[in-house]
């Protein structure tokens, strides 16, 4: 199992910050997922070994956190907030619009592996609602037209 040099540098820097090795687990899982795309059996085995945990312990942690996944997702994960501040400003309509545009349901992935879609809880953009995150990028004050443009931009980005 090989991670990038950047991952290794971060990992090496982070672990000594804590009195117990496993403390580095949650941020490390997210970094690993960002690189590999999801938390594969191989990643789980590797991190369990490095942090002196059983694989079951690592899986227990993964299943708790909503951003962590053991299944592959699209290259761009479109996360639409429908929580209260977004709800009253049309968050559900944005989600429905994305479903129609991408032809997938909540938690689905397009056949070409480009996009997946997820309804998420508040992402801390309430004053700029309705909002969505595509991977880590924020898109705020959305309308259906603006959302189309956002999706189009990612399609273009991917083609480059």
């Amino acid at each position: 199992m090989r991670f990038s040099d950047q991952f290794e540098a971060r990992f090496a820097e982070m672990v000594p910050h804590y009195p117990t090795k496993r403390s580095a687990l949650v941020p490390t899982l997210l970094y690993a997922q960002d690189e590999i795309g999801f938390l594969s059996d191989e990643v789980i085995a590797e991190l369990a070994q490095r942090l002196e945990l059983t694989e079951l312990e690592v899986r227990n942690v993964i299943s708790y956190y909503s951003m962590l996944t053991t299944r592959p997702r699209g290259k761009y994960n479109v996360q639409v907030c429908t929580n209260i501040s977004c709800l009253v400003r049309g968050g559900e309509e944005i989600l429905l619009h994305c479903q129609k545009k991408l032809g997938i349901r909540n938690k689905g992935t397009t056949p070409d592996g480009m996009f997946s879609l997820e309804e998420v809880e508040c992402i801390g953009a309430c004053s700029w609602a309705p909002a969505a995150q595509v991977n880590y990028d924020y898109h705020e004050n959305l309308t259906a037209e603006k959302m189309d443009k956002v999706l189009q931009e990612y399609r273009q980005k991917s083609a480059q």
Partner: peptide
């Protein structure tokens, strides 16, 4: 910061 309606710490 995850309480719905809250976006200040950000």
């Amino acid at each position: 910061e995850s309480e719905p309606g809250t976006c200040k710490d950000r």
